[in-house]
Amino acid sequence: MKQPPLLQPSIHEVRPLPVPKIWHWIGGAILTLLAMGFVQVLVTNDNMQWGVVAKYLFSAQILSGLGMTLMLTVLAMVLGLAIGIILAIMRLSSSRVFQTTSWGWIWFFRGIPPLVQMIFWYNLALLLPQISIGIPFGPKLASWDTNLLITPFSAAIMGLAFTESAYAAEMIRAGIQAVSSGQTEAAATLGLTRGQTLRRVILPQALRIVIPPIGNDTISMLKFTSLVSVLALPDLLYSAQMVYARTYQTVPLLIVATIWYLVLTTVLTLLEHALEHRLKAEHQKSLAKTRSWFRPRFFGSGQRAY
């Protein structure tokens, strides 16, 4: 029998030490070096012109561009989601006409890059000089000059919102389909109308499912709005471009725009996390009671003699 050395403590009194994580230390050292290099560029490279960055970060022109970016994001998302809900319901309708229309819209607007769309909308007057309301091939009730209707702003909103509507429609459709058919049947046997079933039973459950992907889409939309600079619409990026076109301080103004985009996406990410967390907490609150329900039974069976 081998005797343990005298100084060794009893195995029951000590905790085992964790396995040393050598690769974490090596990897960490390499990454630290890279990060330090990055910081060195930020701090010591005079081309960054931090003074210029600080001067323009809160300038009126940049802040108004920031407002435009936010407005485009909110409007395009609201409009896109509204159209998306209608498209999703049409897609799930029993009417072939509605199904095909919805399918066609989604196919078209998901297939064209938003940038191409915006330029196209902006140049609509070349295709249709006049926009009229009336009966096709028949009399016209009212008509407008296309160039008065299509501004950079409305062209941008159309391009962004229509693209979003195609993606939102597919998400919302999946959400509606994830709600079991038993829910619709239960509502039907209670005498709820079709609209009541949709509003009170199906959509509340479906929207809960699609909130996380919609949050994600909002962050994408914020970044997509920078495309409007091609329409000379003064959003965050174009406002920065207008300044550096005058002053040639290209890098510091791009840094100003970058800082603001990062701030906005961070805020949106935090909001999304909070919302998801709340939904999950609500879900878990409803499950927590079920669990405490099962726990006594679980322990109880363990204590039984057989």
Partner: peptide, 30 residues
């Protein structure tokens, strides 16, 4: 049809209660 269906209550194998509403709200909804 909904108007006729309310005359016939139905209980399902899978219960089909509305999960986003409390028991009381499930009963008061219709």
């Amino acid at each position: 049809l909904a108007r006729q269906r309310q005359r016939m209550g139905m209980v399902f194998q899978a219960f089909n209660l509305f999960p986003h509403k409390t028991v009381l709200e499930n009963v008061t909804e219709a």
